[in-house]
Design a protein around this nucleic acid. Structure first.
Length: 627
DNA sequence: GCAAGGTC
């Protein structure tokens, strides 16, 4: 019987796919790596007929990239880093995984790659193939690739029966990013550390007498840039005075305030003239010029992505992105929730979501809500979730798998589980419905509005307890055209206020929107620039803000002074990289061309930076003296 | 001692 080796990106996929292809009749063996199991069964592949199959996996990348030995730190002039030879290396864990692949493919006739169907997965697939060929050259022409985007049985069977090939363009794109990130990161990290490390060490007065690393990374710097940018906008903020009109009418024992349709104006004289005109024309009398009444909706949340989970755990629980992702990872390993790193915000149409809701019926916090979704008498019955526009082609939205019951004792895991579950139930609910009334008053020739909301059906809000939507005070009962006596009519003064300091939730949003990092790495970059002492957390009242340090501010302004602001502290260069990687994937540029473009750019930046290195030192010294 | 990206 022909032998086929299948390799997935992680054990959870290998296990699930083996279960489906074997019809639940696979047998499991251990491997040299504790993260990895091998599953044996038979399956009828179109390219081989009925075959003896081993399904295994790696755990992420199987190799890493580094400069060769001769170009280690201190062993060569830094600019050589831009064209030094690059070698593939393996950590201890990766060696064990590779050993398993080599051992399992020795007798194999075919290899089929089952890594995630995204760019990075394609590269990992390539790493697996390279490793396999080292052990068995005859496999070379017998490599297939399964195309799948979720783990539903029919879909996986279809993928097994319709093998494709690895996409070399995607492999090239990833290799390009790796090489550019490595060379630029290593070169500028060594340069900045040599230039500023000892100085910063003296200023920090560190206990361990270790020269700190002043690193550059293609994601670290734009992330720092966002934080410094906000800090500077606040520091440079000059409040501006403005003036506005506001009127109120009696409403029972209280009053209702109407806001000026013009908002506010920065010209005091103009507002005063308008005010006088209104007084002359209408004294204290106004007319109800418009009443608009319409149904209004508060939408249930979209299916949950990693970025959304991190933003909301930061907002709702003041948890750092790293903490919430770590907790989610643990919950995934324990089998409570689905894979936690996903960009997908719509569920595959054939998923059985109702039975996932059913799992939650036993919980004493939201069980009765789950029950009412399935069988309740209200109009808030199970409703298929909204579909967002993102699909990473690898993982479904994050959702609970089984009820945690009382099985969790870690506080962070408890909170994240509760968030994932309430979010899931909310996404399977009806939108919240209300009624909104807007009343407009005309006073003189000016218009003023007041708004009232009545919440009619709370629906998903009953389970999504962190979101507020309340019925407001009711508007006075008046008819269109009716004349009313104003209880107050005032000209007021106000002033513009600076933006708030950056929260972690906002930083995640900015990184995501600008393509800095991925769902799996955004949290790490934020951690990293704290470790590097570029930013720090500061607690004000109950809010936690991210504030740049002297060093962080100096680096951004230093590169600004050199003329490299846009390339270093802004997201543009990273975005350009993404654009070029797409072009490689589409076959419109090749790897050598893009690597060469970027490395040439970085060599120029390096030349400029070393010529003007005194600027970096001066600016650091200046900023330190005023902070 | 350096990057970013996977995953545990």
């Amino acid at each position: 019987m022909p032998r086929v080796l299948c390799v997935a990106e992680k054990n959870s996929i290998a296990k699930a796919v083996a279960g489906i292809l074997s019809g639940g009749r696979s047998s499991r063996r251990d491997s040299p790596s504790k993260y990895i199991k091998n599953y044996d069964f038979t399956f009828d592949f179109p390219f081989a007929g009925t075959s003896s199959v081993t399904m295994t996996s790696v755990a992420g990348h199987l190799t890493g990239l580094d400069l060769d030995q001769a170009h280690g730190w201190g062993k060569c002039p830094i600019p050589q880093v831009f064209d030094a030879p690059i070698v593939d290396i393996r950590t201890k864990d990766q060696q064990k995984m590779a050993e398993n692949i080599k051992r399992e493919c020795r007798n194999a006739d075919y290899i089929m790659i089952w890594t995630d169907c995204d760019r990075e997965g394609e590269y990992i697939g390539w790493e697996i193939v390279q490793t396999a060929i080292q052990a068995s050259r005859s496999l070379q022409g017998n490599v297939f690739r399964a195309i799948f985007s979720h783990l539903e049985g029919g879909h996986i069977l279809h993928a097994a029966r319709n093998p494709a090939r690895l996409d070399q363009r995607a492999v090239d794109a990833v290799r390009t990013r790796m090489e550019v990130d490595l060379r630029s990161g290593v070169a500028f990290t060594r340069f900045l550390t040599e230039l500023l490390g000892s100085k910063v060490e003296r200023d920090l007065g560190q206990r361990n007498n270790q020269r700190p690393i002043i690193s550059y990374g293609t994601c670290q710097f734009p992330t720092l840039g966002f934080v410094v940018d906000r800090f500077e906008r606040i520091r440079k903020f000059v409040p501006e005075k403005f003036w506005y009109l506001v009127v109120a009418i009696p409403n029972g024992t209280d009053t209702t305030v109407f806001q000026w349709e013009r908002g506010h104006l920065f010209d005091r004289f103009a507002v005063a003239v308008i005010y006088e005109l209104c007084l002359e024309t209408s004294r204290n009398l106004a007319n109800v010029s418009d009443i608009k009444s319409k149904p209004t909706t508060k939408y249930r949340p979209l299916p949950l992505t990693t970025v959304e989970l991190q933003k909301n755990c930061s907002r709702f629980f003041k948890m750092s992105a790293k903490t919430s992702l770590d907790a989610a990872e643990k919950l995934y390993q324990k089998g409570y929730i689905s894979y936690p790193r996903t960009e997908t915000d719509s569920f595959p149409s054939n998923m059985d979501l109702q039975s996932l809701v059913e799992q939650q019926v036993s919980d004493n916090r939201w069980g009765s809500y789950a029950q009412s979704l399935l069988t309740g008498s209200t109009s808030n019955r199970f409703k298929w979730p909204r579909a967002g526009k993102h699909d990473d082609k690898a993982h479904p939205p994050i959702h609970p798998i089984v009820s945690s019951g009382t099985g969790l004792d870690n506080e962070n895991e408890k909170k994240v589980y509760e968030y994932v579950t309430r979010h899931f139930l909310a996404s399977c609910s009806e939108d919240s419905k209300g009624h909104s009334t807007t009343m407009t008053l005309q006073w003189g020739n000016e218009y003023f509005t007041a708004n009232g909301i009545v919440v009619l059906e709370r629906n998903f809000l009953d389970v999504y307890v962190w979101m507020k939507w309340e019925t407001t005070k009711q508007l006075p009962n008046l008819n269109l055209g009716q004349e009313v006596e104003l209880s107050s009519y005032l000209m007021k003064e106000g002033q513009t206020s600076p933006p708030n300091q950056m929260t972690e939730s906002e930083l995640i949003l900015l990184m995501d929107a600008n393509g800095i990092g991925t769902d799996a790495t955004i949290a790490e970059h934020i951690e990293k620039i704290q470790q590097r002492n570029y930013i720090k957390k500061k607690k004000v009242n109950k809010q936690i803000y991210l504030i740049p340090t002297t060093l962080g501010i100096s680096l951004v302004h230093g590169f600004e002074a050199i003329g490299l602001e846009d390339s270093f502290a802004k997201p543009f260069l990273r975005r350009q990289m993404e654009v070029d990687l797409k072009l490689i994937c589409e076959g419109n540029k090749d790897r050598a061309e893009v690597v060469n473009d970027f490395i040439t750019k970085y060599q120029e930046y390096y030349g400029l930076t070393s010529t003007k290195q005194n600027k970096l030192i001066e600016i650091y010294t200046d900023i330190k003296s005023v902070m």
